[in-house]
Amino acid sequence: MPKAAIVADKLNKWFGVGEARTYAVKEVSFEANWGEMLYIVGPSGSGKTTLLSMISGILRPNSGSVAIDGRDLWSQSDDEIADFRLNTIGFVFQDYHLFPRLTTAENVAIPLILQKRNWGDALSTAAQCLKIVDLADKAQLPPTKLSGGEQQRVAIARAIVHQPAILVFDEPTASLDGDTGRKIVSFVKAEILTSKRCIILVTHDSRIFEYSDRIMEMEDGRITGFQQGQTV
């Protein structure tokens, strides 16, 4: 296993053409390592989410490359990239995007369902993941019956249920109060991050900086610096 989980090299993403061209991400290069919890921080519009989308196989860069575990991501076909997302990435969206018409357990099982795992096995694995996030007793409830913090933990369970190597969190504490946010992130750091996993977390919530291993600062689409997280 290469030491670097993610290697981004001279990534560029722009929108518009000609004089209207606007760079969302410009000449961004960085590495994220296995066992590392890397934060991407910066003000709104700094290109954090665009960068996260490019390294997780959702948004194709205009130029530059992304290598995941030594394999070039964007040289693959659309179907291969979809498979890569399904098998390698666990997503925790800012708004959770849980399905209100499914039970909590069914929500957690979705990546396994997409992997064409047997429905019963998928639910059983989902139930185990709900134990990890301490929501075993809420497995049969719809997410709408859960609090914001509980919904966030369901989203985390869904992100880890298929054992992905890379987890991406987009503003995970944006909808949570300070205490809940800290609890969630400390839980992720303690229970989810392993030496064979890399977590990329986009945030501008300084209350959770203490849990990062490294912080990458961005502004106007460029990296402006790195800091060791524990020292912030």
């Binding site: 979809a82 997302r85 399904l86 098998n87 997503f91 969206f93 997409l114």
Partner: peptide, 9 residues
């Protein structure tokens, strides 16, 4: 969209 992001084709 979320399903697509998670890897649904």
């Amino acid at each position: 969209g979320a399903l697509k992001a998670m890897g649904a084709k």
